[in-house]
Structure formats: structure tokens, C-alpha cells
């Protein structure tokens, strides 16, 4: 099955915020259009030096949030989106702590809160439609498609217009790669995107330790149990010897 993604071309974006409005409509998000990601804004368009740029969940190929969630409320769909099931969620907010892009938001003032973030309109994708933001974009600045295809398009644009783009496809390798890809005329660090992310998926850092747990349990069990057995055996022998001496 193809794995889908989004290509955001900041150079083409005119800042009309149609994506933000359609996102609110499709996901039933109330409140005004925001400047910052929030429980009511899964995506925001902001402007820096005449460049309009967009922020949203990157839908990592190997997401930290799905790896840390103790109950598997967050899942990476084979289609590409990282989805969330509020009924499973216990509200530990480890996903928010772990996300390298600091994307998930929380309903702090709701007594029955859930995590809020873009889910790439998974139900629309399942129906064979594009995510709302890509569908509504008048400029094609947000483009939906197979990730490999989008990467080719992004590379072609960078090659054809090296003067107009910084030579960086954000999301190609960041944190092991993401389903959302971005290209821009201004360095991503200047736009507030984390630019020092490792190229390896972050969950590997945890898994190298976690996968050793069975060995640790087995080894420590044998060692500590062995120590107990030796000490105990010696004490038994001591007692027997003392007893024998007594009789003699």
C-alpha cells in the first residue's frame, strides 16, 4: 500500500489561510483562527519576512508519540497519518513531552481532556479524498500524494530554482523522516523549526534500552538468586556443623 504525505511549498503560499478554515470545519474545531497551534488550531499559517509558512503535525515515519504512548492511543497508519484515539488515552501527556516537533496540544480546561493534533484527515484519505487543507489550497502550496512522489517533486523544484529555495527538504531525514515535507526560501531554523534533529528515529534511543529488559531480569534474577542460595547454603552448613559439634 502506498504511504501518503503532504508537500508544503512555502514559496507558493499566499497566506490566505483557507487551509486553517477548512481544517476547523472538517475537524469540528471551534474558536477563531489562531497564531499558534492549539487545541482548536491543528495548523497555523504565519508570516516571516514576506514568506508565509505553515506549521502542523509532521506525521513522522517512526513517531516518538506512538512509541511512548503507554496504551497505544497514538498509531501510525499504513496510509501515512499518525492517528489518535481519545477513548484509549489516559492523559499522561508523554506524547507532548516526547514529540521532537512539540506538536500535540492539550485541553487544559476540560475536565475530560483529550490530546489535539492534526490527523491528516485520515477518514478522508480512507474515502479516497485528499486531506481538507490540500484539497482547499488555491495555489497547490499544500500538495497531497505518495511520499516518494512528493519527494521527487520537491527535489525537482530545488534543482530547477536553486536561487529561490534553501537546499533543504525539511522532513526528508529529520527524526528518521516524516510524511510531511516542506521546502522554503528561508532557512527552517529562522522560521522556528528545530534544525538540529538527528537523522535516526528518536524511539531507537529508548528501544536500545527497553529491549534489554528480558536479559536484565534473567541475569539479575540468576545473580541475586544465586547469591541468596550460596549464603543460605553456607548458613545451613554452619548450623549443621554446630549441631554435630554439639553432639560430639
Amino acid at each position: 500500500m502506498a504511504t501518503y504525505g503532504l508537500l508544503l511549498d512555502f514559496n507558493t503560499c499566499i497566506g490566505c489561510k483557507a487551509c486553517m478554515r477548512s481544517c476547523k470545519e472538517v475537524n469540528n474545531l471551534s474558536g477563531p483562527l489562531g497564531q499558534e497551534l492549539s487545541a482548536e488550531n491543528y495548523t497555523v499559517v504565519n508570516t516571516y519576512k514576506d514568506l508565509n509558512y505553515r506549521k502542523m503535525c509532521m506525521h513522522c515515519l517512526t513517531p516518538s508519540c506512538t512509541s511512548v504512548c503507554p496504551v497505544g492511543a497514538l498509531k501510525k497508519s499504513e496510509l501515512g497519518p499518525v492517528t489518535y484515539d481519545g477513548n484509549k488515552c489516559i492523559g499522561c501527556r508523554y506524547c507532548m513531552v516526547a514529540c521532537p516537533f512539540s506538536i500535540p496540544r492539550y485541553e487544559w480546561n476540560n475536565p475530560r481532556p483529550v490530546v489535539r493534533k492534526c490527523i491528516m484527515c485520515i477518514s478522508r484519505i480512507e474515502q479516497g479524498k485528499e486531506p481538507a487543507c490540500a484539497w482547499v489550497c488555491p495555489m497547490g502550496a499544500t500538495r497531497f500524494g505518495e511520499r516518494d512522489r512528493l519527494l521527487d517533486i520537491a527535489r525537482a523544484r530545488l534543482t530547477r530554482h536553486p536561487d529561490k529555495y534553501v537546499n533543504h527538504i525539511y522532513g526528508e531525514k529529520e527524526a528518521g523522516g516524516t510524511s510531511v515535507l516542506m521546502i522554503s526560501s528561508i532557512a527552517f531554523a529562522d522560521l522556528g523549526f528545530r534544525s538540529t534533529l538527528p537523522q535516526e528515529p528518536l524511539p531507537d534511543l529508548t528501544w536500545t534500552v527497553l529491549r534489554k529488559i528480558p536479559n536484565i531480569v534473567f541475569t539479575a534474577g540468576i545473580v541475586v538468586g544465586g547469591i541468596w542460595w550460596v549464603i543460605n547454603r553456607r548458613m545451613e552448613l554452619d548450623r549443621e556443623n554446630n549441631g554435630n559439634n554439639h553432639k560430639a
Binding site: 512509541s67 511512548v68 504512548c69 496504551v71 484509549k88 488515552c89 508523554y94 524511539p203 528501544w207 527497553l210
Partner: peptide
């Protein structure tokens, strides 16, 4: 939902 980890497993999670 504190009991959820009992039945909903994710062995990749430290939590």
C-alpha cells in the same frame, strides 16, 4: 482510564 495499560499494550513505551 488508569487501568488501560493492563489491557492496551505498547511494549515499546517506557511508560
Amino acid at each position: 482510564n488508569i487501568w488501560h495499560p493492563l489491557v492496551m499494550w505498547n511494549p515499546h513505551s517506557v511508560m
